[in-house]
Measured scan of single mutants.
Amino acid sequence: KEWNEKELQKLHCAFASLPKHKPGFWSEVAAAVGSRSPEECQRKYMENP
């Protein structure tokens, strides 16, 4: 399903605030978004950083 504005906001906010070198980075991003898997978050971010 399409990403909504709130999900995208959470994605970018989590990406900006979490340490990128940490193992499980995308899992933490997904936990912050709440409604998406780590894979979905990574794919979406890579599509549209």
Rank of each mutant, 00 (worst) to 15 (best):
E40Y: 00
M46W: 09
K44I: 08
F15M: 13
P38G: 10
W3T: 05
P38A: 14
L8S: 10
A32T: 11
S37H: 07
F25P: 03
G24D: 15
A16M: 10
E2C: 05
M46L: 10
N4R: 04
A31G: 13
Q42D: 02
K1M: 10
K22L: 08
P38Y: 03
Y45F: 13
V29D: 00
K10H: 15
V33C: 05
R43N: 15
N48C: 14
W26V: 04
S17T: 07
H12D: 11
V33K: 00
Y45T: 15
F25M: 06
K1I: 08
P19V: 09
Q42S: 08
S37F: 08
E40S: 06
A14E: 03
L18F: 08
W26D: 02
E28K: 15
A14M: 12
M46K: 12
H12G: 09
A32L: 13
V29T: 02
V33Q: 02
Q42R: 14
K20W: 04
A30S: 12
E40T: 00
N4C: 02
R43A: 13
A16Q: 08
V33D: 02
P38I: 10
C13E: 15
N48E: 09
A30R: 00
G24C: 10
G34Q: 06
R36A: 06
A16F: 07
K6L: 08
C41M: 01
E47Y: 06
N48R: 11
R36Q: 11
K1G: 04
P19K: 13
A16W: 08
N48V: 12
P19D: 15
K20A: 07
P49T: 14
L18S: 12
N4T: 12
A30C: 04
R43V: 13
A14G: 04
E7Q: 02
C13N: 13
K44H: 08
A30E: 01
R43T: 12
N48I: 12
P38D: 07
K1W: 04
G34E: 10
Q9L: 08
E7S: 02
E28D: 12
E5C: 12
W3N: 02
R43M: 11
S37W: 00
E5R: 08
P23F: 06
V33A: 03
A14Q: 05
K20G: 11
E40G: 00
G34M: 03
L11K: 01
H21T: 14
P38V: 10
C41Y: 00
P23R: 09
R43Y: 12
K22V: 07
K20L: 10
G24F: 03
P38C: 06
S37E: 07
M46V: 10
C13F: 11
A30T: 01
G24Q: 12
A16I: 07
N4W: 00
P19H: 13
H12T: 09
K44C: 08
P49D: 03
C13P: 01
M46R: 13
A31H: 13
E7G: 00
S17P: 02
E47D: 14
R43L: 11
K6R: 11
S27H: 11
K1H: 00
F25I: 09
R36Y: 07
K1R: 10
Q9H: 13
N4P: 01
R36M: 04
Q9T: 10
L18K: 09
Q9C: 05
F15N: 05
K6E: 09
W3S: 03
A30V: 00
C41A: 03
F25A: 05
C41L: 01
K10L: 09
P23N: 14
K20T: 10
K10Y: 04
N48M: 09
S17A: 13
K44V: 11
K44W: 10
W26H: 01
E39W: 05
F15L: 14
S37G: 12
S35R: 11
K44T: 06
E7D: 07
Y45I: 15
S27E: 15
E2V: 09
L11Q: 00
Q9E: 15
A14T: 09
N4Q: 04
E47F: 06
L11H: 00
F25H: 04
S27W: 08
S35P: 03
L11R: 01
K6F: 07
E40R: 00
M46P: 02
R36V: 09
S27Y: 05
A30L: 00
L8F: 03
P19I: 02
A31L: 13
A31D: 09
P38S: 13
N48W: 06
A32G: 09
G24I: 06
S35F: 05
S17K: 08
K10E: 11
H12I: 07
E40C: 02
A32V: 13
E39V: 09
H12C: 06
K6G: 12
A16G: 11
L18C: 11
N4G: 04
V33W: 00
G34Y: 00
A31M: 14
K1Y: 06
C13I: 15
F15V: 15
A16C: 05
M46T: 15
G24E: 12
H21I: 14
W3M: 01
H21V: 14
A30Q: 02
E2K: 10
Q42Y: 07
P38Q: 10
N4M: 03
N4H: 02
C13W: 11
S17C: 05
H21N: 12
F15Q: 14
Y45S: 14
A31K: 15
